[in-house]
């Protein structure tokens, strides 16, 4: 893999596989436009599931610097990552909400190189968050 251009946001797409709260036509259209764009991206079946398992790959997802995430509500996404001890970089993370935004809006936001941070700013930092809970027994 070649080194990325400096500062360009990475793209994460959540398929919300294990529930139907994201309209299927919206997520399909977003994924289609993402594939059509030719841009690199990371796609995960379900962020909730990764958070529930406190999957260490969530830390990998947040380690590439500025990030755009197509998922659901920014407040929920922020704390899903925090719950897995993988806090989002609040000043350089943008969450696009497939529950309420149109597919075209979400896709355009993902594909644009311009980052509009919108994760709620609050007291969470790695230090503020509680100690990670023990991983659930599998």
């Amino acid at each position: 893999m070649n080194p990325p251009p400096s500062g360009a946001p990475s793209i994460i797409y959540c398929h919300c596989q294990y529930a139907q709260v994201v309209p299927p036509d919206v997520k399909a259209a977003v994924l289609r436009q993402l594939c059509d764009s030719g841009l690199p991206f990371e796609a995960v079946p379900d962020l909730c599931e990764l958070s529930a398992r406190r999957d260490p790959s969530l830390r990998r997802l947040t380690s590439a610097g500025p990030v755009k995430i197509a998922a659901c509500f920014p407040r929920a996404v922020k704390w899903l990552f925090a719950a897995a001890n993988a806090p989002l970089p609040l000043d350089c993370a943008e969450v696009l909400n497939m529950r309420v935004q149109s597919a075209d809006e979400v896709a355009a936001g993902l594909i644009s190189p311009v980052l509009n941070p919108n994760v709620p700013l609050g007291k969470v930092t790695a230090a503020d968050a509680p100690a990670p809970a023990p991983a659930p027994a599998s």
Binding site: M1, N2, P3, P4, P5, A8, P9, S10, I11, H15, Q17, A28, L31, C35, G38, L39, P40, F41, E42, A43, V44, P45, S57, R60, L61, S63, A64, G65
Partner: peptide
């Protein structure tokens, strides 16, 4: 990508234009 996601697999589409984890 869709087939893999529906099967429960995470996917990276790599390339040079944007970083990937």
């Amino acid at each position: 990508v869709r087939s893999l996601l529906e099967g429960g697999f995470g996917v990276t589409r790599s390339g040079a234009a944007r970083p990937v984890p």
